[in-house]
Computed example of a mutant assay.
Amino acid sequence: MRRRIQPPVIPVSEQSSDIQLLHAVAAGDTAALRLLHHRHAAWLRARLRRRCADPDVVDAAIQDTFVAVWRDAISYGETAADPAAWIWTIAVRRLVSALRGPAHRWLSGSADEIPDIATTPSAEELVLLGVEHGALGPALDRLSPELRSLIEATALDGLTVREAAKLFGIPEGTAKTRLMRARIRLRELLA
């Protein structure tokens, strides 16, 4: 694992911001990663459980998320999205990847198989897979990070505009304007 040489990092504590923790993780501080996990794993689990009924898949996605945070914290810049939004984007992608795995036979099973309740996808799982692999996925990828994260939080995660604004630390009016811009741009890209 290649890490860029960083300036000395101030020791992390419970009072450290998420950005400070990400910088410490980028410098190889495992205590900072533990703090990030402690802060974010519970709400990630709650949100991912609304998308996938299988707790093992959710747990695997969360574990993979924090492995990715450890590996990619160096690429997180202060001009990027809010750290929680950045972590959420990783988590959703890890969930979709986990759903594509061999344990989910409904993705590659034969037509004559009788679906098992335990492996039948939920509507949310199908939507996530459609977003990732349909026309919407590439269109979302072409949006700027602040527009993409806001539209994903409201349209895919079911947050209200007020909740999304709070999550990203922006005024509600700014969130509404960005959502309007995101919808207009998505219409253009999908036309």
Rank of each mutant, 00 (worst) to 15 (best):
residue 32 A to E: 07
residue 180 M to A: 14
residue 84 A to D: 13
residue 160 T to L: 00
residue 41 A to V: 07
residue 170 I to Y: 08
residue 183 R to Y: 06
residue 170 I to P: 08
residue 30 T to H: 15
residue 84 A to K: 15
residue 59 D to M: 01
residue 160 T to C: 00
residue 10 I to P: 08
residue 146 E to Q: 13
residue 99 L to C: 03
residue 97 S to C: 06
residue 126 L to H: 07
residue 103 A to L: 10
residue 99 L to K: 06
residue 179 L to K: 05
residue 81 A to W: 01
residue 127 V to M: 12
residue 134 G to C: 09
residue 33 L to F: 02
residue 83 P to C: 09
residue 12 V to P: 09
residue 177 T to A: 13
residue 97 S to F: 08
residue 40 H to S: 12
residue 44 L to F: 08
residue 134 G to S: 04
residue 51 R to I: 01
residue 63 Q to E: 14
residue 29 D to N: 15
residue 9 V to N: 09
residue 155 A to R: 12
residue 48 L to D: 08
residue 158 G to H: 06
residue 91 A to L: 04
residue 115 P to C: 01
residue 41 A to M: 04
residue 54 D to N: 14
residue 186 L to Y: 04
residue 137 G to V: 07
residue 52 C to K: 04
residue 40 H to C: 10
residue 168 F to T: 05
residue 85 A to D: 15
residue 98 A to I: 00
residue 105 R to C: 04
residue 170 I to D: 06
residue 136 L to D: 00
residue 37 H to S: 11
residue 149 S to T: 15
residue 179 L to G: 00
residue 132 E to F: 09
residue 31 A to E: 14
residue 120 T to W: 05
residue 68 A to G: 08
residue 141 D to Y: 04
residue 57 V to N: 01
residue 121 P to G: 04
residue 24 A to K: 07
residue 19 I to S: 11
residue 23 H to Y: 11
residue 31 A to Y: 06
residue 4 R to N: 07
residue 78 E to Q: 09
residue 83 P to I: 03
residue 191 A to W: 03
residue 169 G to C: 02
residue 117 I to N: 07
residue 40 H to M: 11
residue 188 E to Q: 15
residue 47 R to I: 08
residue 93 R to N: 15
residue 61 A to V: 07
residue 23 H to N: 13
residue 96 V to S: 05
residue 44 L to E: 02
residue 150 L to V: 01
residue 74 I to T: 14
residue 11 P to L: 00
residue 19 I to L: 10
residue 60 A to D: 15
residue 15 Q to A: 13
residue 105 R to W: 05
residue 102 P to N: 06
residue 91 A to M: 02
residue 80 A to V: 02
residue 110 S to W: 13
residue 158 G to F: 08
residue 140 L to H: 03
residue 6 Q to G: 02
residue 139 A to W: 06
residue 178 R to I: 03
residue 188 E to A: 09
residue 162 R to Q: 15
residue 8 P to Y: 09
residue 123 A to T: 12
residue 116 D to L: 13
residue 174 T to G: 05
residue 165 A to P: 03
residue 84 A to L: 08
residue 61 A to G: 06
residue 152 E to Y: 02
residue 71 R to E: 12
residue 21 L to F: 09
residue 164 A to N: 07
residue 44 L to T: 07
residue 166 K to D: 10
residue 9 V to C: 09
residue 97 S to T: 15
residue 143 L to F: 04
